[in-house]
Simulated assay, not measured.
Amino acid sequence: MTTTELQVEAADPRRPDSVGYRVTLAADAVDVLAAQQLRYDVFSTECGAITPGPDGLDVDEFDDLCDHLVVRSLDHSDDRRGTAVATYRLLPPHANDSDPRGHGLYSHTEFDLSPLEAILDRTVEAGRSCVADAHRGAAPISLLWGGIARYMQLTGYRYLMGCASISLADGGAAAASFADLVQARHLAPEHLLCRPRTAFDPTGIPRPLRRVVPPLLRGYLRLGAVVCGPPALDSAFGTADFLVLLDLETADQRYLRFFLGDSFLGDSGSNLLRDAR
Score class of each variant (00 low, 15 high):
205 I>R: 07
169 A>G: 10
144 L>G: 03
233 L>I: 05
166 I>H: 02
157 Y>I: 00
139 A>V: 06
196 P>N: 04
223 L>F: 09
174 A>L: 09
181 L>V: 13
212 V>A: 14
194 C>V: 05
175 A>L: 02
228 C>W: 01
152 M>L: 15
145 W>G: 05
155 T>E: 11
173 A>T: 08
140 P>Q: 11
203 T>Q: 15
135 H>I: 08
204 G>T: 06
162 G>V: 06
222 R>S: 10
165 S>D: 07
158 R>N: 08
201 D>E: 12
189 P>N: 09
172 G>E: 02
215 P>L: 04
228 C>P: 01
238 G>V: 05
136 R>N: 14
219 G>H: 02
196 P>Q: 03
185 R>S: 15
226 V>F: 05
207 R>M: 09
169 A>H: 13
202 P>R: 05
227 V>C: 09
166 I>W: 01
137 G>L: 10
187 L>A: 14
220 Y>C: 04
154 L>N: 10
179 A>I: 00
212 V>C: 07
144 L>I: 15
144 L>R: 02
148 I>L: 15
140 P>L: 12
158 R>W: 12
146 G>C: 08
227 V>H: 03
159 Y>R: 05
215 P>G: 10
168 L>Q: 03
209 L>C: 04
232 A>I: 03
147 G>E: 08
202 P>V: 04
163 C>Y: 03
199 A>D: 07
179 A>V: 00
145 W>D: 09
139 A>Q: 05
164 A>N: 05
197 R>I: 11
134 A>F: 10
185 R>N: 14
195 R>S: 13
172 G>V: 04
147 G>A: 13
169 A>Q: 14
162 G>W: 00
187 L>W: 00
210 R>K: 15
217 L>K: 00
136 R>G: 13
234 D>A: 08
215 P>W: 06
179 A>C: 05
166 I>R: 00
190 E>N: 11
193 L>D: 03
175 A>E: 02
220 Y>Q: 07
201 D>S: 10
174 A>R: 12
175 A>H: 03
164 A>Q: 04
154 L>G: 02
208 P>D: 11
163 C>L: 11
167 S>I: 06
197 R>S: 09
197 R>Y: 04
229 G>H: 00
229 G>E: 00
217 L>M: 15
216 L>Q: 03
234 D>P: 10
194 C>Y: 01
135 H>G: 10
184 A>R: 15
216 L>C: 06
152 M>P: 01
224 G>Y: 06
145 W>M: 11
